[in-house]
Design a protein around this nucleic acid. Structure first.
Lengths: 214, 214, 214, 214
DNA sequence: AATGAATGAGATTTCATTCAT
DNA sequence: GATGAATGAAATCTCATTCAT
């Protein structure tokens, strides 16, 4: 099992691994510096290759970025969709679970930096914005909207507009993400601590959503 | 004519008048394109002057940006501090008033674009970030934290950590601001509408903050 | 008259002259190296300016090239059109005059290098080819075709297809142009000498065109 | 099977076979795109081998090009030299036959593209130009010059300078070749059609060459 | 012999900043 | 004070050539 069944010569295994290494380096660099400010040479240097090598695998900066998104984010959304469909219990719990999973598996990881970046630079790169909205934002929002509809239908929640409420729910987490990936940590501000923030937010919001008891 | 009621020497009055136009143009351009992507040539064109003229009044791009912030945002915060100190009534109302004022007078105006920009690009320009935190973020947050402390002290609110709760309160408005100034409006997503968003958010949060009734 | 009526300061006169200097440098460089092999840095160096300066006057390499063509060639064609319209005499003379003028004023000058370049590289730059055909080739060919039609109509020439004959007439001059602007002069081949070539060609062709005498 | 009727050692036979495919691919690519614009990767792809393989057979791009010329053009010239020596008849016919053969067997085939390319890019690649002139241009021109000398000596042609007249004869065919392999066919110009062009050219030129009848 | 991943010099283009007028 | 022409460093992308396997 641990003995190598891999019969390929080393350099060929290297070739297979190369795109992953480049994508990892690109993710780090994009998150650290943003899209426009990321120089492909730095991505290359981080991956330990030359500028030219990047172009063997990705046609240009834009395609590199899209590949990072596809590789890292799109996949995760599918899982969450299945989790939500399978859930059976009070809607407050479903909502809390979705939000925590979203936070823990995407927002708090380097991937969160991608979301920040899109919000920050989407205006200047319309094609990327469109791509990101279709592949990520639209599908992600849906998850929460459906959970809210379920909650209202079951009487778990007071009646709210599920689309607007989705935005209200998403906003604090997105903002926590923005702060986490922004200059804030390096400043003398009282730092935003994800644990207490999420707890306070959830407690407050789920209380605020609860159906009025007569 | 040459007698001056204005105590400033003449060249300084001139120096006072011209920068206003430059700052207005710079604000618009920074909001539209972000800090890094703003070309000084476009700022100059918008102000109807030459590129060189900008350098007569501002040492470089960074100083121009700082001047924009000082000119537009710092002043407004003082007012709000006074309003809050003078308020006498239920803390829920105070909080709601502060949040709405913040939204209406800053976030929803072009100035909101500056906040977005700092969040988005602060990492790449640490000196700007530090400046902005000291002059804007720190003083602004304080307002909300004190209102929360007042509410808890008066028994208007259930006991919460006022610093964390400040972050939870600020987050959705900041996020609304991000969305308002981002690519979202141009996409096929259901648009985020400030009115319903703020209403839903306030209703939900103030309910969630209310002291438990025995 | 020779005292300067020009009231502009020197640098401003320089500004007006600048585009001309750049176009002259570009013409030389394009002719010497071809379109693709011309580096804008070399054009700049030849004009004694920096790379960036070129972009103050021409949006990119393609526009620079088009400007060279417009500035130098398009104008000359208009003149020839008027000359031809005004001509009154035997068609053989008209044809000879047109061919000699074409050779003397365009083909044998650096401008001939542009024609060579288009023939050589047009395939790789379709937009340039289209531009050049519309502005130069189409209008130029017309001149000869009309002169041939006139000659046949007047009985100066035996009946020939004027379009095909235009091509046959143009071909040797074009080829002389190609040779003149090609590597040939630097080789140990017997050089092609324009004077005898044109004389021999005209003599032969005009004899061949003459209407049969009964 | 292993007994060889072929006297060459085995590795040399192999080395003989493979290059043919590479040369064919290189010819096509050079003709299609020119020398400088031809990427060795495309040549390799066309030949169905890897880029590295090219370097096993040809030291570099330049040697590859020379091999293409040797392989395809140099051989053909020898044949024509023999045909001309054996010809017995009126010099007009000989000249016509040589020109038509040249057109049909070289110029109108892909090989014509090589001639175009040399004329177009020779300036930028002096070593190639020298090589091409020695191997191709000099020997080719000779054929026509000798036929003209023969015609003048026999009284078939009026007295002309055979070297200059060679250039005048060659020029239209070369030009037809240039047009055939240039952007012209793709333009809205009246296309140059080889059949009528050659007929018109030959008719006109042979008439123009004919000795004056007393 | 054959591969194809990797390299790095070099080309076009952009833009904050300077400075002669 | 005001101008805007000029600069040159830096970013993206290309491709002939090399070399480990």
């Amino acid at each position: 099992m641990q003995a190598t069944q891999d019969t390929k010569p080393r350099w060929e295994r290297r070739k297979d691994a190369r795109p992953q290494e480049l994508l990892a380096a690109a993710l780090e660099q994009f998150v650290e510096r943003g899209y426009a400010a990321t120089r492909l040479e730095d991505v290359a240097k981080r991956a330990g290759v030359s500028k030219g090598t990047l172009y063997l695998y990705f046609a240009n900066k834009e395609e590199l970025f899209k590949a990072v998104v596809r590789e890292n984010i799109v996949a995760t959304i599918g899982e969450a969709e299945q989790d939500a469909a399978a859930f059976d219990g009070p809607s407050g719990e479903l909502l809390g679970a979705l939000l925590m999973k979203w936070w823990n598996e995407i927002c708090s990881t380097p991937l969160g930096g991608i979301a920040k970046l899109m919000l920050a630079e989407g205006n200047n790169f319309p094609e990327l914005a469109e791509f990101y909205n279709e592949e990520v934002v639209a599908r992600g929002s849906n998850l929460f909207t459906r959970a809210l509809e379920r909650g209202v239908a079951r009487g778990d929640f007071r009646p709210v507009d599920p689309v607007v409420m989705t935005q209200v729910l998403i906003a604090p987490v997105m903002m926590l993400l923005m702060w986490t990936h922004s200059y804030i940590p390096t400043c003398d501000m009282p730092p935003v601590e994800p644990g207490p923030f999420m707890a306070t937010f959830l407690e407050t919001t789920l209380r605020g959503l609860k159906a009025d008891t007569p």
